[in-house]
Computed example of a mutant assay.
Amino acid sequence: MIAYIKGQLVKIQEESIIIDVNGIGYEIICANPFSFQSSINEKTMVHTYHHVREDSQILYGFKNEDEKYLFIKLISVSGIGPKGALSILGTVDIPAFVSAIEQEDDKFLTTFPGVGKKTARQMILDLKGKLNIAFSIGKDQEQESEHATVDYQTINEVQEVLKSLGYLDKEIRTILPEIRKEPKLNVDEAVRKALSLLMKN
């Protein structure tokens, strides 16, 4: 397996980044490719998961080992493939997610794209007790993360507003994880926060 790739980040695309390693360009699929924007044209290490199927070999990339570990655990759940796992990682706050699994909060889990009640229950069944040790989520963090939830419907509405203002999907995706971490916001508050973050980028 390819655990990580270290080389020059030469290109960022809608769903992937390209790392040049001694003249060979590795295309790596990421949840938020533009989160690597600050490393463009610099030597970069990307944690990777090498997904092998009969008809393809795909490299999935992550900013850190926590993201990679969660991805591996997610694709072990019946009904969740790599694409679904990346959709979750695209807006996930890991402490809040782990807390939801431990507290069997299927309502929170169904706020993620592509996750219905059946899949949420399967995630709880398969992952409970397996994440809190790996990520060291304490009770204080669990209590905090209960409040750090901007729901998916709000996130979706924020995306639509930002698109109507002329922002591109690739720009919007870079700030969604930060919005998701905020204490519960209404749409107007979340849009203001998003615009503030976009102007900084």
Rank of each mutant, 00 (worst) to 15 (best):
L109A: 06
A194M: 06
I124S: 03
T149G: 09
G129M: 06
I101L: 01
V92T: 05
L127A: 07
R192W: 07
F135K: 00
G129P: 04
L195M: 03
K73M: 13
E104W: 02
G84C: 01
L74D: 02
T119D: 02
S136W: 09
A96V: 04
D105Q: 03
E182C: 13
K118W: 08
D126G: 06
K130H: 12
V150W: 10
T111R: 07
P82A: 11
F135H: 02
V161N: 05
L165W: 09
F71D: 00
T149R: 15
K117S: 15
V92I: 12
K139F: 13
Q122P: 07
G114R: 02
S196K: 15
D169S: 13
D140M: 14
D188K: 14
D151F: 01
G129R: 05
K130N: 09
P82Q: 03
S78T: 14
I72G: 01
I137W: 07
P113E: 03
V158D: 04
K117A: 14
I155H: 08
S145C: 10
L109G: 05
R180T: 05
D188R: 11
K83E: 05
Q153N: 13
H147Y: 14
D151H: 09
F112T: 03
E102Q: 12
G81D: 01
V187I: 10
Q103C: 07
A194P: 09
D188L: 10
P95C: 10
K130Y: 08
L74H: 07
K117G: 09
V92W: 02
K163S: 07
G81K: 02
I137H: 04
D93I: 04
V150K: 09
L195A: 03
L131I: 06
E142C: 07
S145W: 07
K117I: 13
G166N: 11
K130F: 05
D106I: 15
T149A: 13
Q103K: 10
E102T: 09
L131Y: 03
K128A: 01
S196W: 08
Q122N: 14
S136M: 11
T149K: 15
L127M: 04
S136L: 08
E189M: 07
L176Q: 01
L185P: 02
P177R: 10
D140S: 15
D169T: 11
V115Q: 02
D140E: 14
E104K: 13
V98T: 02
V98N: 00
R121E: 14
S164A: 14
